[in-house]
Amino acid sequence: MGSTPRHPVPLGFVFRSRAKEEKAPSVDKAAVTDSKQPRDPQAPKGRPTPKRSEAQSQRRSVANTPTTRKEGAKRQREERRAQLERQRKALAGGDERYLPARDKGPVRKFARDWVDSRFNVAEFFLPLAVIILVLSVVRVPALQSIALLLWLVVIVLIVLDSLLNGFRLRKQLGERFADQNRRGAVAYALMRSLQMRRLRLPKPQVKRGERP
Rank of each mutant, 00 (worst) to 15 (best):
L91W: 03
G93H: 11
E78A: 15
F110N: 12
V115H: 06
E123Y: 02
V107R: 06
F110H: 15
S117L: 02
P100K: 01
K109F: 00
V115I: 15
L84P: 08
S117K: 04
K89G: 11
F125S: 11
L91N: 11
R81N: 06
L126Y: 06
P106Y: 01
N120D: 10
G105W: 07
R80Y: 04
V121N: 10
V107Y: 02
R86D: 05
F124L: 11
F124D: 10
E123T: 01
L91S: 08
D113L: 10
F110D: 09
D113Q: 14
V115F: 06
V115D: 07
P106G: 12
D113W: 06
K104I: 04
E78D: 08
R77D: 15
L84E: 14
R86L: 07
R112H: 08
L91K: 10
L91G: 12
E85C: 14
R86H: 01
A82L: 12
G93C: 15
P127V: 09
G94C: 08
R118S: 05
D116R: 07
L84H: 10
R81E: 00
V121G: 06
R97W: 02
D116P: 03
E123K: 01
K89M: 12
A122P: 02
E85Y: 07
F119V: 07
Q83Y: 00
F110V: 08
G105E: 09
R112L: 13
V121M: 09
D103I: 09
F125A: 14
A101R: 15
R112C: 12
A90V: 01
V121S: 08
Q76M: 13
E78V: 11
R112W: 04
R97Q: 13
V115R: 04
R102M: 04
S117A: 15
F124P: 03
K104P: 02
L91V: 05
R102W: 04
R108S: 02
R77A: 15
F124R: 10
D113A: 13
E79D: 00
A92R: 15
F125C: 10
Q83R: 04
A82I: 09
R81D: 01
G93Y: 13
K104A: 03
Q87V: 01
R80N: 03
A90Q: 03
K109G: 05
